[in-house]
Design a protein around this nucleic acid. Structure first.
Length: 650
RNA sequence: GCUGACGUAGCUCAACUGGUAGAGCAGCGGUUUUGUAAACCGCAGGUUAAGGGUUCGAGUCCCUUCGUCAGCUCCA
């Protein structure tokens, strides 16, 4: 029994009465013809529905148009269906996987005997335009389980999905023209609404994200409400490519990765090495102020150590194979290059008796470790095999955990936000399925992390099951130029290793107690962080980080002497200055300094040479120059370096 | 690791369907001595990633290996 009328509340609070059975489209029509044309979907209490579905009584309803972000997701989801429609027409035997909207676009997975070629993509895109032209309505139907199975009898992928649906779940099917898909929806009213889209690329993707299962072919595309948005997005992709640290690393001669040595192994060229040196110096100075102690430990160890720590065999996949012992040593002695520093730092902790009064003991090491990452995962400096971690292990009492985590979160903020001006996200990663230790321990650990996060009053996401096998962690996430997400800083709580190594401290009760450990890295690794900074600053580093801070440019050889004086005085003042005495035109040398993103140019012509001044040109500021005395210039540079200013001081 | 694409001078890229590997920039040598984003002339630079095969002939076609890129999977 349905009421003869339904009532809905609009976002402005007003109420509307409609005949029972009215749809979102009817509501839009009732409000006005403009809205009827613009409406794409309807939102009921946060849930988005198709316009064609009858509205329930007494709901809050909002019509979505191209102004709503949620509508954009609907558009992209519908675009995925248009893609599948086109693929099915060109490849009738293609089986259909998933086709969701994603950030900036959509994809659809297909099982086809041969992967799509770029030419196929062009054909598919052309076919998609025909589907759009045909303006097929998206028709929603609810079907029973058996009916659903019958309809998709020829597609094992769909059948598998149907089988996975819960008994109470409504099974809906969407049809646009010749294409029928099992789909939760919602969709735009018809394919004609999709106008501004482009297929980007195709690549393999495992069915259901499981590498043990077959590989499907995924086609990625992007879709927008307006031509301008689409073009802006494509431009944004182009711009992002210019910030790519792999490109800038070459252009600015920061680093290289060489085939002769191996993938994922970074050569830090002099300019890149200066970046690393500054970053290292900054973090080491900072943590020394905060009660850390620096240590250095060996790069290889008897394999035994990693057996005891539990890394072998658990982490063996990511470790390089064992190295045989040298002549004269027992044949059973095998060595491993270290993938982590924790066991090393633990041995230092365990090398003497510790009192409860000594805790926390904070051992830090900017250390090189080696991990045999899978070849396909390597990516410039962001994913490498030789990692330089700014690692530390903190040994503490359980009652100290919350405070220590609190302080660590502050350290993260100091480095990320207050020093580099970076926006960052925090994830609280909780217990995974495969874990060590009792649930009670995990409860305590997770709660300690939570409390510290809340005490800092920062928002964070919960990454359910994303913790390490030995404990929960807080991870810092950021995006690279191309939008991929990476992990930076990490703070991990560990009850397991102290147990395995039988660590102890003497308590106030004069009895042995077991400490807890925190593994933490602030940059994460210098490779990844540096790569990220290159992209973040697009190579135009703040002064304190810039490998070359000032380029001194004499206008002609007559000023060479004066320019040499400027260079040496700057260097004496702790500024990384470099004299460009090539017999090229001034314009040429300015252009070169600009392209190398040197923050300051100090031009020395006859006037400056006589007056003891320099003509300062600021990176990126064009012709605007300032004549200052060398002393003033030095003061300004030193202040800017000392404060680690992100932009030139006025 | 998996799927696909790709690999030509230090860098960016040419070389029609197999027919003598080229250009710009960078480098080097000269000339030029410059006032705010590329002076001019010349020279040199390559076992076409490596190895094998097909062919009268391979940068181009086939195979193997290595590497790069995109995505998946996995992780700082």
């Amino acid at each position: 029994m349905s009421a003869p009328e339904i009532r809905v509340t609009l976002p402005d609070g007003s109420e509307r009465r409609l005949p029972a059975g009215s749809t979102g489209a009817d509501l839009a029509k009732a409000i006005g013809p403009g809205l009827a044309k613009a409406a794409l979907a309807v939102r009921l209490d946060g849930q988005v529905w198709d316009l064609s579905r009858p509205l329930p009584d007494g709901m809050k309803v909002a019509l979505l148009t191209d102004k709503d972000a949620q509508a954009l997701d609907v558009l992209r989801h519908s675009s995925a269906h248009v893609l599948a429609t086109a693929v099915r027409q060109l490849f009738p035997h293609a089986r259909i996987g998933f086709g969701p909207p994603i950030e900036d676009g959509f994809y659809y997975d297909f099982e086809v005997p041969t992967p799509f070629t770029p030419e196929d993509l062009a054909r598919i895109e052309a076919k998609m335009r025909e589907v759009v032209q045909a303006d097929y309505p998206f028709v929603r139907e609810e079907v029973g389980r058996e009916e659903a199975k019958r309809r998709f009898a020829d597609d094992p992928l769909k059948l598998e999905r149907i089988g996975d649906l819960g008994p109470d779940e409504v099974i809906s099917v969407y049809t646009d023209g010749p294409f029928v898909d099992l789909c939760r929806g919602p969709h735009v009213p018809s394919t004609g609404r999709i106008k501004h889209f482009k297929l980007l690329h195709a690549a393999g993707a495992y069915w259901r994200g499981d590498e043990r299962r077959q590989m499907l072919q995924r086609i990625y595309g992007t879709a927008w409400f307006s031509k301008e948005d689409l073009e802006a997005y494509l431009r944004r992709l182009e711009e992002a490519k210019k910030r790519d640290h792999r490109l800038l690393g070459k252009q600015l001669d920061l680093f290289s990765i060489q085939e002769d040595v191996g993938p994922g192994l970074v050569f830090w060229h002099p300019k890149g090495a200066m970046l690393q040196f500054q970053l290292r110096r900054f973090i080491e100075d900072t943590i020394l102020e905060r009660g850390y102690q620096l240590v250095y430990t060996p790069h290889v160890t008897r394999e035994q150590l990693f057996l005891r720590s539990g890394h072998l065999p658990l982490y063996a996949e990511n470790q390089f194979p064992a190295i045989g012992a040298g002549e004269g040593e027992g044949e059973d002695v095998r060595y491993r290059v270290k993938p982590m520093n924790c066991p090393m730092h633990i041995l230092i902790y365990a090398s003497q008796q510790r009192s409860y009064r000594d805790l926390p003991v904070r051992l830090a090491e900017v250390a090189n470790v080696y991990r045999n990452e899978r070849s396909g995962t390597l990516h410039g400096m962001l994913r490498v095999r030789g990692l330089t971690m700014d690692d530390a292990h903190i040994f503490l009492r359980e009652d100290q955990i919350e405070d220590e985590i609190f302080q660590l979160l502050d350290l993260v903020d100091l480095v990320m936000a207050r020093t580099f001006g970076l926006a960052y996200r925090l994830d609280l990663a909780t217990r995974p399925a495969k874990k060590l230790g009792s649930d009670a321990t995990w409860d305590t650990a997770e709660r300690a992390l939570e409390r510290a996060l809340q005490r800092r009053g920062i928002t964070y996401r919960v990454d359910q099951g994303g913790g390490a096998f030995y404990g929960p962690k807080i991870d810092v996430k950021f995006n690279d130029a191309i939008g991929r997400e990476w992990q930076g800083a990490t703070i991990q709580l560990d009850y397991e290793l102290p147990e395995r190594f039988q660590l102890e401290y003497a308590g106030a009760d004069n009895r042995p107690h077991r400490p807890v450990m925190i593994h933490r890295a602030i940059y994460g690794t210098l490779e990844r962080f540096c790569g990220f900074l290159i992209e973040h600053f697009a190579g135009a580093f703040p002064l304190w980080l810039s490998p070359e801070q000032v380029r001194v440019l004499p206008i002609s050889d007559d000023q060479l002497g004066a320019a040499r004086g400027v260079e040496s005085q700057l260097r004496a003042a702790g500024v990384r200055a470099h004299l460009d005495e090539r017999s090229e035109t001034l314009n040429y040398r300015i252009r070169d300094a600009e392209m190398q993103k040197v923050p300051y140019m100090a031009v020395v012509g006859q006037r400056e040479a006589e007056a003891g001044t320099v003509a300062v040109r600021v990176r990126g500021a064009g012709k605007k120059q300032e004549i200052v005395s060398l002393a003033q210039f030095v003061d300004r540079l030193q202040a800017e370096i000392r404060t680690r200013a992100l932009a030139p001081l006025a």
